[in-house]
Design a binder for these strands. Sequence first.
RNA 1: GGGCCCAUAGCUCAGCCUGGUUAGAGCGCUUCCCUGAUAAGGAAGAGGUCGGUGGUUCAAGUCCACCUGGGCCCA
Length: 1036
Amino acid sequence: MTIRPVPAQIDLPAMERSILDFWREHKIFEASTAARESSQPWTFYEGPPTANGMPGTHHIEARVFKDVFPRYQTMKGKYVTRKAGWDCHGLPVEIAVEKELGFSGKGDIEKYGIAAFNEKCRDSVTRHVGAFTSMTNRMGFWVDFDQAYWTMAPEYVESVWWSLKEIWKKGLLVQDHRVAPYCPRCGTGLSDHELAQGYETVTDPSVYVRFPVTSGELADLGAALLVWTTTPWTLVSNTAIAVHPEVDYVVAEVTAEDAKEILIVAQPLLSALTGEVKALKIVKGRDLERVTYQRPLDLIDIPDSHFVVLADYVTTEDGTGLVHQSPAFGADDLAVCRAYGLPVVNPIAPNGTFLSEVPLVGGLFFKDADKTLVKELKSRGVLYKHQPYEHPYPHCWRCHTALIYYAQPSWYIRTTSIKDELIRENNRTNWYPETIKTGRYGDWLNNNIDWALSRNRYWGTPLPIWRCEEKHEVCVDSLKELGDLAGKELSKLDPHRPFVDDITFPCATCGKEMVRVPEVIDCWYDSGAMPFAQWGYPHKPGSVEKFKAAYPADFICEAIDQTRGWFYTLMTIGTLVFDQSSYKNVLCLGHILDKDGRKMSKHLGNVIEPIALMDQHGADAVRWYMLAAGSPWSARRVGHDAISDVVRKTLLTYWNTISFHTLYAQSSNFDISQIPAVKDRSMMDHWILSELNSLIAEVDQAYSEFDSHSAGRVLARFIDDLSNWYVRRSRRRFWDGDLAALGTLHECLVTLTQLLSPMVPFITEHVWQELVKPADAAAADSVHLTDFPIADKDQVNLELNAQVALTRRIVELGRAARAESAIKIRQPLQRALISAPGWAKLPKDMRGQIADELNVIDLADIADADGDLVNISIKANFKTLGAKYGKSVQEISKAIATADATPLVKQLRRSGLAKVGDWEIELSDLVVTEVPKSGWMVASHEGESVALDLALTQSLIDAGNVREVIRFIQERRKSDGFEISDRIKVRWNVDPAIAAAIADAAAHISDEVLALEFTHDQTLPAGENDLGISVVLVKT
RNA sequence: GGGCCCAUAGCUCAGCCUGGUUAGAGCGCUUCCCUGAUAAGGAAGAGGUCGGUGGUUCAAGUCCACCUGGGCCCA
């Protein structure tokens, strides 16, 4: 066959570009799924990215993991379709367009026209999708863009409508007036999961304000209720003060700066008072109920109010234990005040400013009014204390405006009513890592609150509810149903604002005109509806079958911030509509951090652009780093150095081994049909095949558990074993064109390439085309069209693995001794003595390798050496002794340390038992180290030792010189540019003192350097090296 | 304020579930070796209070409690 050598150096990014062309031209992705069409499906759902900006490095992270497991499952024989998706609607897109157009709020949008504005939003989405597509292609994420779902597509919107109607029919989609977080700039309420994304730490004024009591005996005392708040602007609409019924409140006489006053605070919070404090009396919170007070500000009219109310939610953790109530701006406040029949007064307009008719603060933005109000409180003498207070406060996650908790009408999905079902579905879900299930996500479900679904915005799925003056409601599930109601053909209508707003029809109940409610829905609902809406279910022909075949998903994967986002909406909508969660396995990724462990943000200037990263290091490099350099679920740092390190270590070693193999495969006309049967191969071959088959099982297991980190670790270890032990130890066999060696290496590389291919699809494809296809006409056209390797347990030989490990440890010790001795490895030594458990059983082959690696002629067991030559030292093996004797181990250890080691070990070896002090021990209770007494260079570690005989004889020195000459000629062959198989003629000269020894070894040297002639030419000038070697090489 | 995760060499990470007395690997640094994969490979050295404190135990990086710092989430 025709394996051609590949260069040892590789330009990864350039290679990747040609592989991308190859995949495109040969439609490999399409072929990989088409081949499995009749197999069992393994369903993947793509969480749609919001196409409102350029893709970042965190997008690569998620996409690497979304790619590797579908590739693996495809190789395992599953049918894995990968439908791309784009999240098109929502505030992020609107904000981006507003910025583009220079708008500053909803007024500008309405002036501009909703139709035109939405058209701009549509354009913006389309534009950004391009950037995502090219990044996705570049990184080798196989996903089908041709059939991508777009949440703004009419069929998608209709599918969402259908699901909303299902929920509405169950009575779970309702309008309610509630206090909810609201962005005054965007003019819309935010859902709980949006709120979660926008906490920022701010410094607010925190004020302690006196509310003088105006009724009862406390009024006679001149007492004042002391209230603490961090939102002075809500004092304008103060309606009541809440206390906890069971808490003790202290009526305290406070003396500070010669002034006396009487203040009321909760007992645990007495420390809020400054100065000398004397408790006059203590009252229960419930006894304060309906006590009236003088409010601190009287800017607006609030009738029938201003007294103390009782509320269980009041805490004594901070403040004063007295909580001022402003029902328009707090959910708890609203509930409590409603119970007391108090009015809801709201002096703030939807744009966040005080109504113009309010004195003092009219027209001011609510947060900006704090300063003015604090000044006013001070001048009225009711301000007790004032200090800055740093705390997290919710902000709009996109525009960063401080949110206001604001009473407003809003549409809700009653998710609280399916809480039990959600918990049931969560219990059936496999979370990776597992802790999320009962931890972060489980907690969230347990504290579930209703989903605030509606948004008072423009670019979103319109809420498909029409209503008449009499509040009769109809929910529409499709354009067809809408057309039937309106008596028009509407199937071609764009189901967005403002077009759907224009459709009206008479109410079936009262005959009055029905108009659509003005809201659009939370775009998180759109993405959570993708399991069915991506097919246009149930309206579109064929969608029912497609949906049923692909629900629920076997695999979804996003970063951990999606626990309250997509992971939640997906499960919730699935459970609401189908009484079943939409996914079975969910992989939850850690976040991407910069090289110093900080979050990447434009603000810090530490953002790494994904395309640049891949152009510099290669997509495989970035992928390998993301997958293997840390656990999927822990946060990972990304930096250039970190990536180039892992590339050099693993990918280039792998590539080097490929390059090595192609070199010798070509020079020996390697033909896979000539590979000997496994049983006829050498022990080294058996060993690496044993490791290979263990590896297959380990990688298979790791991939199946979404643990790319473990897979990467065992793969990297195998690459190291293969390159730095198997190939290194078998080099001579490759030079000789040994078919067993070439065949074994080839088989290892083929399988390794397959195992690596889900993680690093480019370089493995390149290898497949360069190494596998040329050698095997029957091989698949692409590595990505192959079946995942199956481990052959019969080839796994744990004893052999252990023996090779021992061999390698002995070699390491020998090298250490060599280095210590300062005698170059090139210089042969007569013998080495070895002491190690297991040494006696080590096969001859491996002993030969040790001798070879250490360049030693004889190896012997230290035990066989003259008894006087060896020192035995022993220490306690705590693990076995501890199990047997527990507490006494320290004493035994001392006894062992002072025992005479040599006779003790001899006795143990003879009889198996011996006594140390009062304790009976076995040989395994000791760690025995044997070292020669003198004249030897010794290295030992954990009971294994190697000793080198440093005595040099003339024949050893001669042998060393011969080896030096061989090395010199080999180097010259290379620098002169000969092919490894070229035969040469050699003329040589060396220092006369060693010439005879070189001449004697002429046959051996000729053989090693492929010389047909080897002539001593004394006319050559001496070379500038230790032995004065000079050579002239001529190609024959 | 609450929950979860993390903390081991300058850096990236193993080891912890199942406790055992010299805590490992790779990268980087210094010195040396090897040379038919060579922009590879090997050895040695420097570099660790295993975040801190306490507890359990004959024995703690490993088990337990508390604390500190970082990340994420919630309020």
